[in-house]
Design a protein around this nucleic acid. Sequence first.
DNA 1: CACGATATTGAAAACGGTTTTCAACCTATA
DNA 2: TATAGGTTGAAAACCGTTTTCAATATCGTG
Lengths: 149, 149
Amino acid sequence: MKKPEEQFLDYLARKRLKNTSQRMTILKAFLRQKSHLSTEDFYLQLRKKHPGIGYATVHRTLKLFSECGIASERNFGDGQMRFEVNLGNEHHDHLVCTDCGRIIEFEDQQIEKLQRDIAHKHNFFIKDHRLELYGLCSDCHATGQQSVS
Amino acid sequence: MKKPEEQFLDYLARKRLKNTSQRMTILKAFLRQKSHLSTEDFYLQLRKKHPGIGYATVHRTLKLFSECGIASERNFGDGQMRFEVNLGNEHHDHLVCTDCGRIIEFEDQQIEKLQRDIAHKHNFFIKDHRLELYGLCSDCHATGQQSVS
DNA sequence: CACGATATTGAAAACGGTTTTCAACCTATA
DNA sequence: TATAGGTTGAAAACCGTTTTCAATATCGTG
Ligand SMILES: [Mn+2]
Ligand SMILES: [Mn+2]
Ligand SMILES: [Zn+2]
Ligand SMILES: [Zn+2]
């Protein structure tokens, strides 16, 4: 597995795109951030240290990360696109706490197998899938209460 | 299981909402339509026979259907909200053809069980989940070609 | 039935996240 | 350094969803 930095630079070269200071700044920040951040949240974080970089550039660069394979776009149904770093290339799915927003990742080979079985049964060619479990994480469940809103 | 019409009328009564001709027209049309239609598509269909009914009313009424339990909102990641009639109350998941838009429904108790196991393992309380398999349906796969776009 | 309180309607505007536009600017190459 | 062409940030456009608002309809009550 190539390092993310390398993978991104290779992609830029391949597509005759340019290596700019903004792109490198965003890349470093992105690799350091916790994952599953929305574009907006990531931008707000970044802006603290790099107030000169515009939202549009952040947005475009995150899309580049996704195109070159070092990031994945996620959509947890709250109307915001989220991005996460691809560590290795293992697939995983998510538990999403609807109270505190916590995201827990999981992988289950049995489920993946059963999905392939279903697709096969319908003569369906799977290109991608998404499995998300929504509910309350251990912290939010423990109290027996959802946060007062 | 109560009939959808009845369930909707009960809901209106319970919430002290009014039984209007628009709502009844939309209800009848909705129960007749094929499921998984976007608000826009449903509205365009409806407008052919009932040009007087506005988009806002359609939108609001579909939300009412969802609230009273006779419909479910779906989001297949194309940026459009979709609605489907709840036949009975059985849960199901979807195969989504990314080429022709065909939706195939399925239900798999093994997967549901494994999901509960995962939630339990993380001490997570599941309120809802979504599982969608994206790819090519048998028709679109058979040709070996995606449609020329 | 008529009244009046209250809910509903359709058109248009507002909303919110995403994407594009554009003129100034930068990068890579020679 | 000169040039071609990609990049940038701000602002505007976009697009599906939701709200606003004045006119209208519903429905319990007299
Ligand atoms: Mn993840
Ligand atoms: Mn369905
Ligand atoms: Zn939580
Ligand atoms: Zn298809």
